[in-house]
Design a protein around this nucleic acid. Sequence first.
DNA 1: CAAAATTGATAGTATTACTATTAACTTTGT
DNA 2: ACAAAGTTAATAGTAATACTATCAATTTTG
Lengths: 226, 226
Amino acid sequence: MDSLLSNIKINIPPGIYLKDPETSELGKKIIEHSIILIQDIGFEDFNFKKLGGVIGSNESSIYRYFESKHKLLIYLTSWYWSWIEYQLVLEIFSITNAEEKLKKAIEIVTRTTKQDSKYSHINEVLLNKIVIYENSKSYLTKSVDTENKEGFFMSYKRVVYRISEIISQCNSTYQYSLSLASSIVDGALHQHFIKSHFKTITNCNTKNTPTHFFTNLVLNTIKIHG
Amino acid sequence: MDSLLSNIKINIPPGIYLKDPETSELGKKIIEHSIILIQDIGFEDFNFKKLGGVIGSNESSIYRYFESKHKLLIYLTSWYWSWIEYQLVLEIFSITNAEEKLKKAIEIVTRTTKQDSKYSHINEVLLNKIVIYENSKSYLTKSVDTENKEGFFMSYKRVVYRISEIISQCNSTYQYSLSLASSIVDGALHQHFIKSHFKTITNCNTKNTPTHFFTNLVLNTIKIHG
DNA sequence: CAAAATTGATAGTATTACTATTAACTTTGT
DNA sequence: ACAAAGTTAATAGTAATACTATCAATTTTG
């Protein structure tokens, strides 16, 4: 199992960064504190000068790791989706029943994140909050097609693929497994956002979670029970 | 019918603008050409100086209508959702069967927009494209709670309410009508985006439209047929 | 036709999102 | 142990952004 897992370690497409932040202390500090700072003040108000102030480093040093804050955002969301993919593989690995696999997969992408102690410099709870608020801003840009060609959104898309495959295993005649999978992934972020800010347009709360809503939705849509 | 419809004319909460753009020629030109320009260069690269150049007007004059480009974006998305709400009321008005109502409602919020000749200075086809790319940026900000309290997102939320009510009319025992409605509205924009840019994570295309996908999803989810 | 409102022109500011250069410091190979 | 290579810090600078302020010219309105 160790060899299987090592193949799907958190993997970020090079080209997103100028210098891999995992290879130095400063790099790790950039990642650690960018998560804290973006979560605190929001992506629009975040910049490398402020981040430099927080980590006691110069703005220009951060620019040697990332050519822009946009690229840093893509790095963070890629890390997050790669980490989610890792959980999908790890937690579904031992499940044989297709429906149980699907339920677990839905749980993984819709649940509220809990801290993972494996990656000491990354606070996954805060990163999840960043993804809820900022994920769509990473691709809703004029440069999306170029960046997509360079593979910058592969982590995100692989999570969708994996879920669509599990859906197909449950119901091979269902025609919209990709659209359903992408709707779960994007929709979960949206439900988490509106349950905090637009409470009147969701039934989700601490009791009725997005996981309940999407599990019911998916199982009915692909007619596993009825 | 005329008196009914006049109550739900396009209605924008004041406070979004400093001066109502509908009350002057310059105001209408600002709206008309901001739609064209934002669609062309994207919201990030759009600014009032460039807009002024296009309409032959001074930057400072535009600032008398909107205090920021962010407020202008909220104006445009509010206009769009108010226009969608108008269509929901108008096109569903004469339908008596609850399931047919729901199908029509899903069609209205998921279809590709066609030009409406009623509003001469607004190109609804371009505005729909802006909404696909930029809608979420209007509320994914640190100021969302303040602006929500001021009613800036009412048009969007009213569209979700109306759809959730139609869902409840079809199945009064279904527990997630609001979450389902908000997932359709947000999910439709997402499917339209990814069918243009991330084709590998959707089954939607010109033949299998988002309308087909969501109609099937909703009817199965609330178990209208089985 | 005078008062009020609107628009245009110009100027100015603080901040952003970088780039460039050079010097100081740290790591690495032999 | 030490020179070479690589990394980081400090400083300076730039073009653009997102505004605000002022005042004159023009248009609208009562």
